[in-house]
Simulated scan of single mutants.
Amino acid sequence: MSKRRFHTIFGITTLIPFFLLLFPLFEIGNRATPIIFGLPFSFFWVILWIVITFLALIVLFILDPEKHEEGDE
């Protein structure tokens, strides 16, 4: 994967959850019911996107083309 493509994917991966947690897109998950794992849906929505972002960044870290370059110390 090229560096430019990696940086584009990284930017999209970090911006999508950011926008989904901001108004007006937060309105998708801004409701009190249903209760999931004892949390109102709006709290679950925020925690869900934090976990998804964390997992996506771990995958991107593993796929990082700059990590595999020769000469890194």
Rank of each mutant, 00 (worst) to 15 (best):
G29A: 04
R31Y: 12
D72F: 04
V46M: 07
G11I: 00
G71V: 04
L25N: 00
E73D: 09
L22I: 11
I12P: 02
L22Q: 10
W49K: 01
I12C: 02
L63R: 15
F37C: 12
A56Q: 10
L48V: 03
V51K: 03
K3P: 15
L57W: 14
I35Q: 04
G71S: 07
V46G: 09
L48M: 06
L20V: 13
K67Y: 01
I28Y: 10
F37A: 13
E66C: 02
P65E: 13
P17I: 05
F54L: 15
L25D: 03
A32P: 05
R4Y: 05
F54V: 09
V46S: 11
T53F: 15
T14M: 05
N30L: 05
A32M: 12
F54M: 06
K3C: 12
F6P: 00
R4W: 08
E73G: 09
F19R: 03
F26G: 06
E69V: 11
E27H: 06
R4N: 14
F54R: 06
F19I: 15
V51T: 08
E70P: 07
F61K: 11
R31S: 13
G38Y: 12
R31K: 15
G71T: 04
E66F: 09
I62D: 03
S42W: 14
I52M: 06
I58K: 14
G71Q: 15
V59E: 10
L22N: 15
L63Y: 11
I50W: 07
H68N: 14
L55I: 07
F43Q: 10
R31Q: 14
E69T: 05
S2W: 09
L60I: 05
F54P: 13
I12M: 10
T8A: 13
F6S: 08
F23R: 13
L48Y: 01
L57E: 13
T33A: 05
L21Y: 09
H68E: 06
F10V: 01
F23S: 08
H7P: 05
I62E: 08
F18H: 11
F43D: 13
F6Y: 09
I35L: 07
E27N: 13
I50T: 08
F37E: 07
L15T: 02
L20P: 04
L55Q: 12
L25E: 05
L22S: 15
T13R: 00
I16H: 10
F41A: 09
G11K: 00
P24Y: 00
E66H: 06
D64P: 08
I35A: 08
K67W: 09
R5K: 11
G71L: 00
I58C: 05
L22R: 10
F41D: 12
E66W: 12
F19G: 06
K3S: 15
G29C: 04
T13A: 04
H68A: 06
N30F: 09
F6E: 01
T14P: 09
G11P: 00
M1F: 06
R4Q: 07
